[in-house]
Amino acid sequence: MNGGRLATVTLLVRDYDEALAWYRDCLDFAVMDDVDLGQDKRWVVVAPDADRGARFLLARAEGDDQVARIGDQTGGRVGFFIETDDFDRDHARMRAKGVAFREEPRREAYGTVAVFADLYGNLFDLIEPRKAGSSKP
C-alpha cells in the first residue's frame, strides 16, 4: 500500500465508560470520538496525540470469546508502544495517576523504556527513543 498508514487499532474493553475514563485521566489521551451507534453500542476513539499517530477504538467485548481476550490481546507480550520526548516527565506523571508500571525504567540501545499495564492488564512500553547520533540511550 503506497502512502497508507495504520490509523486505528481495536482494543477490547469491559465497559466503554471505565475504559474511556482510564485512558483519558491516567494517560491523558485525547477523546477523538464518542458516538452513540444505538443498540447499546458506541464508537469510542482515543489517542495519545490528537494530531498524529495511531488511535485506539475502545470496543466493548461481546460474547465469551471476546470477553476472554480482554487484557490479553497479545498473549502476554507488550503489544503497544507509546513514544515520548521526555521519559522522566511522563513516567512521573503516569505513576502519580496510578498507572501500574511492571518494572523500573531501563536504558536500552534503542532508548529509555518501562513496561506498564492498562486497567485490564494489556502491556505497553513507555519509551523515549534514543536520539539519532547519540551514544547514550
Rank of each mutant, 00 (worst) to 15 (best):
M1F: 12
N2V: 11
N2S: 14
N2T: 14
L6F: 15
L6Y: 12
T8Y: 03
L11P: 01
V13M: 11
R14F: 07
D15T: 04
Y16I: 04
Y16C: 04
E18Q: 15
E18S: 15
L20H: 01
W22F: 15
R24I: 02
R24K: 15
D25F: 09
D28W: 03
A30H: 14
A30G: 06
V31T: 11
V31R: 08
V31Y: 07
D36M: 04
D36H: 05
L37Y: 03
L37P: 05
L37Q: 12
G38L: 04
D40K: 13
K41Y: 08
R42L: 01
V44W: 00
V45E: 06
V46S: 09
V46H: 08
V46R: 08
P48H: 00
G53W: 03
G53Q: 05
A54C: 10
L58M: 09
L58G: 04
L58F: 05
A59E: 12
R60K: 15
E62C: 05
G63Y: 02
D65M: 09
D65L: 11
D65C: 02
V67K: 14
A68M: 05
I70D: 08
G71E: 07
D72K: 14
D72T: 12
D72N: 15
D72P: 02
Q73Y: 04
Q73K: 02
T74A: 11
R77T: 09
V78R: 03
G79D: 09
F80G: 00
I82A: 03
D86T: 00
D86F: 01
D86P: 03
D86H: 06
F87K: 03
D90R: 07
M94W: 11
R95F: 01
R95I: 06
G98T: 10
G98N: 10
F101E: 03
R102Q: 14
E103D: 14
E103V: 06
R107I: 13
E108M: 13
A109Q: 09
A109E: 14
A109M: 10
Y110A: 08
T112E: 07
A114V: 00
A117F: 02
L119Y: 12
L119F: 07
L119V: 10
Y120R: 06
N122E: 15
L123P: 01
L123K: 10
L123Q: 12
L123M: 09
F124E: 05
F124R: 04
D125M: 02
L126Q: 01
I127Y: 00
E128K: 10
R130H: 03
G133L: 08
S135A: 13
S135W: 10
K136N: 11
K136T: 14
P137C: 06
P137T: 08
P137E: 09
